[in-house]
Design a protein around this nucleic acid. Structure first.
Lengths: 224, 224
DNA sequence: TCACACCGTTTCACTTGATAGAACGCAAAT
DNA sequence: ATTTGCGTTCTATCAAGTGAAACGGTGTGA
């Protein structure tokens, strides 16, 4: 491996990253299948992670995420992007547009939904906090890639404030608008996004949502 | 190191474990001081953790916990010990006793508060979720050590249901009662605890709290 | 009941990865 | 202007980490 990384640490983190809301518990064999690692390697790596509380193992030998991960997750959430800071903007957006408002951050080649205020409509683009979606799709994916330095090709999707309006990316029936949120230091914090049914959240509705979206994104910059 | 563990993984996890609510952000030098690791070692380890989103680094070169930790932490919380399951019991306990009710799990040689319902009294043993406390002190420390197989010496503190009543352990002015919570499989899930001012949460008040504490602990067993 | 498949565990030869010391450039502090 | 400390890079050295093989146990199906 490259000399500025640590292969066995990445193996261990790939084990942790294999857990999901669909797969919160896994056997040794399942982890081997998910990660491609050898069972004896997994045993060694998970023994160390257990000692530090990042993984736990029940009496049937099944593995799950441990309490240390959650404890550190709380620290993350007390960061700039903490819920109390972002939540009012999401609520305003969800109420004003009638659609689902969410805040995404980039993790490697994925985007993760940190916070969301789901639409009051029963027919909606339902997002759960913690969901991982592809970075290659969606308005927020485009925003996160562009403003973290990736080449996204044609910039015609973006207005001059970096806001994107898309249809049928995450899902053929979903349309979205998304805009970047920056920290005071100029770094990208994440993407503030509204998503809804394309038939309801049409071009006019999306255009009407953009000024409020951009205004709220700018107001989120104040913290740090 | 023992052949069933992985030293570099434990070094990486010791870096992650160095973060706390008091120290959510650290420089390279601060991490070196906290962990005793060499700076070049930390650089390599953190490069790998950044790639997987477990650590992030701002433009000033300061490190903080990354979004992958939080995402996995959500998975942990959807486990047996998920909030919705435990919270009603904590609320009942806090209301019935007027003191702080909390739920602790063991992590290595520490206990971590997963959930708490703080006392309505302004003068109280205030606990935040995510707090790490010593395993060697406190009623819940005693319970967690005893029921995870450690030798705790004199068992006189325990009643026949494994409940402990202590004074002046975590803090000279604090008294606590704590009882084990088990999973259906018989494994220890954690310790359900009530803590308050020793002058207010005296021997009689603690004795009065124990039946309810034990009853609620048993009711928590139903899940899985 | 038996054979087979799969799981989790242990061992160890071998290869490669990981470490930390040294040196460097830079910025901040004195 | 000088010193100090930080973050970064490089590399010789050595120990760690890997995965293949073998094992015992358990569950399944014939």
């Amino acid at each position: 491996m490259a000399t500025n990384r640590t292969e066995s640490v990445e193996r261990a983190l790939s084990i942790l990253s294999a857990f999901s809301t669909q797969k919160p518990v896994m056997t040794l064999a399942e982890i081997a299948e998910e990660t491609g690692l050898h069972k004896s390697t997994i045993l060694r790596l998970t023994n160390s992670m257990q000692i530090y509380g990042f993984i736990q193992r029940d009496e049937d030998g099944r593995y799950s995420v441990g309490p240390s991960v959650w404890r550190l997750g709380l620290i993350f959430r007390r960061d700039f992007t903490k819920r109390e800071h972002v939540a009012p903007s999401l609520r305003i957006l969800a109420e004003a547009t009638g659609e689902t408002a969410s805040f995404y951050v980039r993790v490697g080649n994925e985007r993760v939904c940190l916070y969301r205020e789901n639409s009051p409509n029963l027919l909606r683009f339902h997002v759960e906090e913690g969901m991982r979606l592809k970075l290659s799709t969606g308005a927020s994916g485009l925003v996160l890639r562009h403003f973290s330095g990736d080449d996204v090709g044609d910039l015609a999707h973006f207005n001059r404030n970096g806001t994107v309006s898309t249809v049928g990316q995450t899902n053929p029936n979903i349309s979205s608008v998304s805009t970047p949120v920056f920290k005071n230091t100029g770094e990208l914090a994440g993407a503030l996004t509204v998503s809804g049914l394309a038939t309801r959240f049409d071009e006019e509705a999306r255009a009407n949502a953009i000024p409020l979206l951009e205004s709220l994104a700018k107001s989120l910059m104040a913290a740090d």
